[in-house]
Structure formats: C-alpha cells, structure tokens
Nucleic acid binder design. Sequence first.
DNA 1: GCGATCTTTCCATATTTATAGAAATAAGAA
DNA 2: TTCTTATTTCTATAAATATGGAAAGATCGC
Lengths: 110, 110
Amino acid sequence: MEKTTAIEALAALAQETRLDIFRALVEYQPDGLPAGKIGELLKLPGATLSFHLNQLKHAGLIQSTRDGRSLIYTANTEAVDLLADFLREDCCSKSVGPAASNSTSFSNMG
Amino acid sequence: MEKTTAIEALAALAQETRLDIFRALVEYQPDGLPAGKIGELLKLPGATLSFHLNQLKHAGLIQSTRDGRSLIYTANTEAVDLLADFLREDCCSKSVGPAASNSTSFSNMG
DNA sequence: GCGATCTTTCCATATTTATAGAAATAAGAA
DNA sequence: TTCTTATTTCTATAAATATGGAAAGATCGC
C-alpha cells in the first residue's frame, strides 16, 4: 500500500462522524445502507453526511450503487485490512534499524 | 482500545510529516533519536518538529527521555499494533449484521 | 409533464490544524 | 556566572477541514 493512500485512509477514519458512518456500514454488511438511513441512524443533516461519505469514498473505504432514488453505500472492509497491514508491515512494526545496539542481536545466527 | 484513543492515534498518523517522524523512530528502534537528529533527517524547523512530536506523544505513539541536553524520542510500536487490532477487530472487520441477507448464512451450523 | 422523495452540490461560516520565527527554558561546559 | 547547545513554548498567520441551510440534480409514480 502506498504511503499517500494510507494517509488518506487514516485521515478518513480519524474523524468521529466518519468512523461512526463506516462502522454502521460494516454492521450492515454486505447489504449496505442508503444514505438517508445512515443520516437517520446518526442524526446528521444531509449536506454534512454527504460531505463525509465523499471523504470515505475518495479514500476507497466505501462505495455506492444506485437503487432507484436511493444510493446504497457499502463498506470496503478489505481496504481497512490493507491499512492494518500497512501499519503492521510497511510502516511501523518493530525492526532492527541502523542505530540499533540491542544486546539480543542475532547477527551470527545460521 | 477506546474509540477516542483510536481516533487520536489515527489522526496522529494521518499526516505526512508525523508519519515520517514515526517511521524514522521505528527505524531507529530501540535506541530512538534525539529531537535535533529527527529535524536534521527530515529537514524540519525546530518549532514545527516540536509541534508534531507533541501530537504523537499525546496520541501515545512515542515517548521521550532526557539525555543531557537532548530529548531522546522512541516509537511505541505496541500502540500501532493495538491500533491495527482495533481496525481489524473492534472497528471494521467483516461481520454479519442486522440487515444481512447473505446467501451463505451459517445459521443452521452446529 | 408535475410533484414527491432522496441525495448531492453550492456557499458561507466556524473550527481545527499546520507552519515557523522569536523568545523562553533546560542543561552542561568554561 | 556566563556561554553554548538542545529543545520547547509563545505568537501570529496560513491552510485545511467540518458544518449545515438552501438550491439543484436524479429518479420514480401519477
């Protein structure tokens, strides 16, 4: 996962309203929810909701399909899994770096 | 992990400069780096660096210890692991919720 | 087409976050 | 104590993000 992609996903989830929206969509997997229902559940005015849905969509965390007058939003849980992988592997996991002077070096193993 | 704690950690990492700082500290685990060295590596003015270090510290992602005139910062990789766990488990993992009408229901298993 | 419903975009405004120079604080050295 | 180095806090400012009313765009039923 690209660093910039990860930052966008992190930023998208680093906001209470959006995290709540996303969790609601995860809860209603795999059917998803129409925008109006989300706004009803979380008591959000249309414009505010739409703004946050857009952020989540741009970050690749949700997608939408039209069903008549409604837009059904669904969570892309795979994107979250990739983000978790990024945090653990590409980004921030424990590793022995240049300045390491740890006493439990395994440099003469195998 | 609390939702608010997770949001603070997500917000802390959702910013390029801070993510870079954190990654540098992970790379220099477990010794860490003095603030000045971080600023030198990432070419950041003191005040800007200090601002971001503070954000990361408040989010529980790094900590500091004094060594003479220097403050040595170290990454708290465990916090990132907990954040990754939160994303996978408490928050956003695939699950069958209230509205689920999936055709691969296991309701009459076992 | 017209009205009703669902949702988005437009817009103004409020709030939060980032940037960085300058002054202040902390600690060791002379 | 005074100087030097390392870092933070103060302060102002710029930039990005969030909020929500009002208008506009889609879609359906009549």
